[in-house]
């Protein structure tokens, strides 16, 4: 009986309203396919990419500034051309997207953990605790996210020696983006928690003397996670963009591990000298990735909203 359980779970997914609303919109299916393809090829970049752009042995400066394959002077080895150091643009995009996605996922995860915890405590405790936490959230919202990220990065740069900073730069970036995005999670979770905590199942748990922490974790949390999923999806696009912005400004990941933002910045220098492909293709990849993720997030928000069904 248990051997069939996974198969049955799979059919259950295909039976749901969610799946039905998914298949009904070609836009959503298309963006899901694109998102999965981009994320998949970025995640498996070392196996998918035609070259390893970081392997100095295979680089040849004579290959520099090769245009894309369909233009005059294109080379069959470099589908989307090469950059100023003879690196294959397609490969750098895949490797770069890998870093962008890693930073995006990790910072959303961090923002989600922080925001959900703060929202749960504020909503469940209420009163002064709630007021203090929400005022902190209000104050946080008065600073643009990029400013906070720049601030965090600046402080870390000033405090740590350069070598150490380069090694942990990616984690600083994740922290900086995450810390500037926890408020939407906290607000949403606080609201749903305030609704859930007055329901009788929470009272039933209080009657048997469970601690507030235990009630928040095992009773309230599972019931407030639905909207969190939607926000996380929407925030993923934002986090990827924030990373690209910071890297474009030169305060993101070090050039030795270029993300999409770094690639765009580097390629920007050659835009007016005619080698447009060095910056346009990473830019297109970034825009496509963020757009498909955002479209998925929008659909998820509508599909999970019972009032819009």
């Amino acid at each position: 009986m248990s051997a069939f359980a996974p198969a049955r779970r799979l059919t259950r997914i295909f039976d749901t309203d969610l799946w039905w609303s998914f298949t009904r919109s070609p836009t959503v299916v298309a963006s899901a396919v694109i998102a999965v393809a981009l994320i998949g090829s970025a995640a498996f970049a070392p196996w998918v990419a035609p070259h390893n752009p970081f392997d100095l042995a295979t680089l040849n400066l004579l290959d520099a500034f090769t245009p894309p394959i369909w233009l005059e002077g294109g080379d069959a080895r470099f589908l989307l051309g090469t950059d100023d150091q003879g690196r294959d643009v397609l490969s750098t995009i895949l490797y770069g997207a890998r870093i962008s996605l890693f930073v995006g996922f990790c910072s959303v995860l961090f923002a989600m953990t922080l925001g959900v915890s703060i929202g749960l405590v504020a909503g469940y405790a209420g009163g002064t605790v709630d007021a203090v936490l929400m005022r902190i959230a209000d104050i946080k919202l008065t600073f643009p996210a990029i400013l906070i990220a720049l601030l965090v990065d600046g402080i870390v740069r000033a405090v740590l020696p350069r070598e150490l900073h380069d090694r942990i730069a990616i984690w600083v970036l994740i922290f900086a983006i995450g810390i500037s995005n926890w408020v939407p999670f906290a607000r949403t979770v606080r609201g749903s928690t305030m609704v859930e905590k007055n329901k009788e199942y929470v009272m039933a748990a209080r009657v048997i003397g469970l601690s507030p922490a235990r009630i928040m974790w095992s009773h309230v949390l599972p019931n407030v996670l639905g909207p969190v999923l939607v926000i996380a999806t929407l925030q993923l696009g934002f986090a990827i963009l924030a990373e690209a912005t910071l890297s474009f400004l030169g305060v993101g990941v070090p050039p030795t591990q270029p993300s999409l933002g770094t690639l765009i910045r580097v390629g920007n220098d050659f835009l007016f000298s005619g080698e447009w492909w060095i910056t346009v293709f990473p830019g297109t990849a970034l825009a496509t990735m963020v757009l498909s993720v955002n479209l998925l997030g929008d659909w998820l928000r509508d599909a999970l909203n019972p009032k819009l069904r």
């Binding site: 329901k199 009788e200 009657v207 009773h219 019931n223």
Partner: peptide, 30 residues
């Protein structure tokens, strides 16, 4: 030794829990 039965059976059971865990909760808590 004191237990409570609530008014709204649609709100008094956690929708995300299996019935066996709901019924076992006081056993585990105490």
């Amino acid at each position: 030794r004191i237990a409570m039965i609530f008014q709204d059976p649609y709100a008094s059971l956690n929708p995300r829990w299996r019935v066996r865990d709901i019924v076992a909760e006081p056993l585990r808590a105490f």
